[in-house]
């Protein structure tokens, strides 16, 4: 009897070892511990046995049955804890992801940095009056910048803005002093197109008005913005420049991002790339914006966002930016 019970257990163990699916285990289960199983038969025969045998085998049989049931339930549980590697888990479909325009990405980066320094991002108008584009910015009537060759004048007496600088005036009028704004936006110059020239491009204007602003403040803000956008420490240098709306005016160069300043074709061997015009806000501009130049002063700058995007993404033909050609644009992602 002991032997038989032992054999039953052994047989069950062997058959369970063969099973792979839940259904197989259930079959084995009914065979070994079901109503028609041998152990069931033995247990139902128990009542016919002598008292001695009953005592001898009763508990053994019951224990064996429990053990066998346990083996089955273990096998079932085991099945769920096994990896069900029943499909090709190496298949990959490429799901197309959308894309933002590189200018949008760079504009977001620059404005995020400026926002951390307390700048508000404002938005200006592309069709603008002569007053805001020129006059209020201390650009007199006979200034070359007003030429037809450079400016798109419109038949309604307005123009397409040649610079985002008009937003300096709008912002001073809207918010007064002290003030920290930046204004990313699209600007227009009447130019023939080639790989380096566009008639439609983006700038971001920046302006700070407060008491006691220094040239050093301007340098600090520029250095920080550029280092963060270009993801590398850049040096900047100021050179004298001339813009009617700032005095003093500066051309800001950054150390060449290609050669690091040692000289290469990109920087024409100078080690520097001319990037940002800026300077201290001209008193006449403050007056145009209704701000007292005896109390306040400030700085302003204009970063060429198109230029910056081209540097960052190593875009060698400016025309792809306004082409809408997905073959180029799909390469840019969302951040």
């Amino acid at each position: 009897m002991e032997k038989e019970l032992e054999n039953l257990k052994e047989a069950l163990r062997n058959e369970l070892a063969e099973t792979k699916k839940e259904a197989d285990i259930l079959n084995v289960k009914s065979k070994y511990v079901g109503k028609k199983s041998r152990i069931f038969e033995l247990l139902s025969d128990l009542k016919n046995m002598s008292v001695d045998d009953k005592r001898k085998y009763g508990s053994l049989m019951n224990v064996t049955k429990k053990e066998m049931e346990m083996m089955v339930s273990d096998a079932l549980e085991n099945l769920d804890s096994q990896s069900s590697n029943l499909f090709d888990d190496t298949i990959e479909f490429e799901k197309e992801l959308g894309s933002l325009h590189p200018i949008t990405i760079v504009a977001k980066e620059v404005t995020d940095i400026l926002k951390r320094m307390g700048f508000t991002v404002v938005s200006g108008h592309e069709m603008e009056t002569e007053y805001y584009n020129f006059e209020a910015l201390n650009i007199p009537k006979d200034h070359p910048a007003r030429d037809m060759q450079d400016t798109y004048y419109l038949d309604n007496g307005m123009l397409l803005r040649t610079q985002t600088s008009g937003d300096q005036i709008h912002s001073m009028e809207r918010f007064g002093a002290p003030l920290r704004i930046c204004s990313p936006g699209r600007t227009f110059r009447n130019e023939d197109l080639d790989a380096n020239h566009e008639n439609t491009f983006f700038q971001i204007e920046g302006m700070v008005i407060d008491e006691g602003i220094s040239i050093g403040n301007l340098m600090y803000v520029m250095k920080l913005v550029l280092s963060e956008v270009l993801k590398q420490e850049v040096d900047i240098r100021l050179r004298p420049g001339f813009f009617p709306f700032t005095e003093p005016s500066y051309e800001m160069d950054i150390s060449c991002t290609i050669c690091g300043g040692s000289g290469c074709p990109t920087c024409k061997n100078s080690g520097w790339i001319e990037l940002i015009p800026g300077g201290m806000v001209h008193p006449n501009v403050l007056r145009s914006g209704g701000i007292d130049p005896d109390k306040y002063n400030g700085f302003a700058f204009g970063i060429g966002l198109t230029r910056l995007a081209m540097m960052k993404y190593k875009i060698n033909d400016i025309r792809i930016l306004n082409s809408g050609d997905i073959r180029y644009l799909e390469n840019f992602r969302i951040d």
Partner: peptide, 30 residues
């Protein structure tokens, strides 16, 4: 104080369209 929200609102819209609907942002002439 945030004095103007247009830029950020436009950015939110662009990001939603690109991220959720896999769209491509383009720029075209005026």
């Amino acid at each position: 104080k945030e004095l103007d929200t247009i830029f950020n609102q436009e950015y939110e819209v662009k990001r939603l369209l690109a991220l959720k609907y896999n769209m491509r942002e383009v720029h075209s002439y005026m």
